[in-house]
Design a protein around this nucleic acid. Structure first.
Lengths: 324, 324
DNA sequence: GTTTGACATGAAACGCGTACCATATTTTAT
DNA sequence: ATAAAATATGGTACGCGTTTCATGTCAAAC
C-alpha cells in the first residue's frame, strides 16, 4: 500500500506538496504537479478516507434514522435526503431503529463519535433531553415536530392536516368521525391525536372510544380495523386514517363485505401514496421527497454556518377522490 | 476535547492501558481499570471513530447502491440489508445512483478509499470490467445476476420467474402474450427479456413487436401502456409485467375503459407488493427483504473469511389472484 | 528449585493526510 | 526603487487510537 510519504519520496517533493496536488491547491509548480501525478499513477495510490476524515475532523456523511426503511413514507423521505446529499457531495448513513430507543441511542453515538457530520431524525422516540444533550455533538434536523429547541425542523403541519381532513368530512355532513393512527407515541402520532380530539371537542362531534385505533401500519391492519368497525353496533360515518395503506385495507375490506364507500363509510387517508389513486382514496398529500430534500439542504446550510430558518413547515393539500 | 493521552496522564497509566480498558481487554488490574473509567467520566471522554477506523483499517460499514431508494423493491431490499447490519453491528451507507454510471463510480470509491468494508450492489449499470477491478479493494455482493466472477451473488432466478409467469398464462390457454419490463439494460431487464423470448420461441407463441414495452416503472406508466394496448388493432390476450405498480396502473386503466380483466386481458405482475392484493393482481412473489438480509449476511460471512456458497438463488412463488 | 504460563504494563511505531508556520522567490503596485 | 502581494515549498505538529514488542511479576507445574 502506497501512501503520501512514499509518493513524496519518489517524486522528490515534500508530503505537503503531494497533499496540495491531491487537493488541487493552486500554489504548486506545474512540473512538480505533473511529477507527483505521475508517481501517483505508478504506485496506484489510493487515498485513505479514514485518515482524511480524522485529519479534517469531518466525514462528509450525514446520518438518518427511521423506524423502518421499507415503509413508503420513510423510503421516500430517504430518497429526498439522498438526492440532496448527492447534490452536496455528502454520503448518507441510514439506520433503522424499529422505534427502539436503545437502537436509537446506539446510532446517536455515530454523531458523538464524529462518524457523521450531522443527523436527520426521520422519526425518533427518544425524549427531548436526550436530543438536547446530543445536539452538543453536532447539528440535528428533525423531520417531525420535536420539543427540543436545539434541533432545526422541517415538518408538515400535522395539525393543519388533521384539520383539513376533519373540516372536509364535517363539510360533507359527518358528525361521527373515527380516528386511526400509527405509532401513538411518535411526534406525528401525538400531534395528530391531540389535534383530532381538540377539533372533535370544538366542533362538538359525537364520540365513542371504540372509534379510535392506533398502531396500525399495513393494508392487513386496515382490513382488520374495518372488520372491527363493521362488527360494531354503532359505527362512525367517517374515518380519518393516518396512513394510505391502512385506509386502502379498509376500503378493500368494505368492498369485500359490500359496505358502500363513501355512502356508508367515508374514508380519508394521509400521504397520497400511489396506491390511493388506485383505490380512489381521498388523501392529504404530503410532499415527502421534498421534505427529505429540504431537511438535508437545511442540515447542509446549518453546517456551513449559513443563516437559515430554523423551523420549516411544509404545506399540505387535500386530494379529493371518491372515498369521501 | 479529551483524548486517550489526556486520560492516560490523569489516571497515571499508559495510553495502552486506557486502550485496553476501552476495549475490555482482560489483562488490566481492577484498580487501574476503575481509575481509568473514573477519569473517562470526569473528562467526558468520547472516542473518535475516525481514529479507530484508521487504526484498525476497517470501519464496520457496508455500502449499498441502488438506482432509487423510494422504489418499493429497493426500499425493501435496503430494509433487509439494514436488518442484517443491525444484527452484525454494521452501519449502512446508502447511495442512490439513478442508474448513472458516473455516480456509481463515485460511490465505488468509498470502497477503494476504505470508507466501507464491503459493498452490496442492489443494481448496477457498470460493466463487468469495472466491477472486477473494484473487487481488488473489497468484498462485493450483488443482488442481481452479474457476469463478474469476482462478486458473490444473491438473486432471484428471474429466468424461472418469467417461466412461471409464461407457463401459468399458457396453461390458461393464452397464445398471445406481451411483455412489459423496467430498465432493459439492467441485469434483471436483460435476463427477463431473454428468458421471455426464449420461451416465446420454444412454445411457438404469437408475437407482434408492439406487444413489448420497457422503461416502465410507475402506476402512471402502466395506465399509459394499457391505453396504448387498448388502442391497438390486435392486442395480446395476456401481459407479463415486470412490476406490480405498472401492472396495477394497467388494471386501473382497464377498469376505467371497461375492459374486463382477465377475460379480455390477463395480467401477471412481479414482486407481490401490498398493492397487488388490493387490485387482485396475480404476481410472482419475490421475498425481497429476505434477499437483502441474505446479501448482508453473506457479505459479513465473506469478510469474516467463512466459507459460504458464493452464488445463492432465492426461490419464487406464484400468487394466483383474479387478474389471470 | 526451576521452568512455564498467566497476568500486567508501558514505550514506541503505525495507520495517513491536513494544516499551520516559516521561509524563499517572484511579481506587481506605488 | 521599495514595499507589498502573490507564488512556491518544506518542516513538523496534529488528529487519535491500536498493536506489536519488550519487560516484569507471580503463581502453578514438574
Amino acid at each position: 500500500m502506497s501512501n503520501i510519504t512514499a509518493i513524496a519520496k519518489r517524486a522528490k517533493v515534500s508530503r505537503t506538496t503531494v497533499s496540495r496536488v491531491l487537493n488541487n491547491h493552486p500554489y504548486v509548480n506545474t512540473e512538480k504537479r505533473e511529477a507527483v501525478l505521475k508517481v501517483i499513477e505508478e504506485l496506484n495510490y489510493v487515498p485513505n478516507l479514514n485518515a482524511i476524515n480524522l485529519s479534517r475532523g469531518r466525514t462528509n456523511v450525514f446520518g438518518v434514522i427511521v423506524p423502518k426503511i421499507g415503509h413508503p413514507f420513510f423510503s421516500n423521505l430517504i430518497e429526498g435526503i439522498g438526492k440532496a446529499c448527492n447534490k452536496h457531495n455528502y454520503s448518507l448513513l441510514v439506520h433503522q431503529s424499529n422505534n427502539d430507543p436503545k437502537t436509537e441511542l446506539e446510532f446517536f453515538n455515530k454523531l458523538k463519535y464524529k462518524m457523521i457530520d450531522g443527523l436527520i431524525l426521520g422519526s425518533s422516540v427518544s425524549p427531548t433531553g436526550v436530543i438536547d444533550e446530543l445536539s452538543h455533538f453536532g447539528k440535528i434536523v428533525s423531520c417531525e415536530y420535536s420539543d427540543s429547541s436545539k434541533v432545526a425542523k422541517v415538518f408538515v403541519n400535522h395539525e393543519s392536516g388533521i384539520k383539513m381532513a376533519v373540516d372536509h368530512l364535517k363539510d360533507q355532513g359527518h358528525q361521527e368521525i373515527g380516528l386511526c393512527i400509527g405509532n401513538p407515541k411518535s411526534g406525528v402520532g401525538i400531534t395528530r391525536k391531540k389535534s383530532f380530539f381538540n377539533l372533535q371537542k370544538e366542533y362538538r362531534l359525537s364520540w365513542r372510544d371504540d372509534w379510535y385505533f392506533d398502531k396500525r401500519y399495513t393494508i392487513e391492519d386496515g382490513a382488520e380495523v374495518a372488520k372491527t368497525i363493521f362488527g360494531q353496533p354503532s359505527r362512525p360515518t367517517a374515518m380519518v386514517v393516518g396512513n394510505d395503506h391502512v385506509a386502502t385495507g379498509m376500503i378493500y375490506e368494505a368492498k369485500k363485505q359490500g359496505v358502500k364507500i363513501p355512502e356508508e363509510l367515508a374514508i380519508i387517508g394521509f400521504d397520497n401514496q400511489p396506491i390511493s389513486e388506485v383505490v380512489e382514496l381521498t388523501s392529504i398529500n404530503q410532499p415527502i421527497i421534498e421534505i427529505g430534500e429540504t431537511a438535508a439542504n437545511l442540515l447542509h446550510s446549518i453546517i456551513q454556518n449559513q443563516t437559515v430558518p430554523f423551523i420549516n413547515t411544509i404545506e399540505l393539500e387535500l386530494i379529493k377522490r371518491k372515498s369521501t
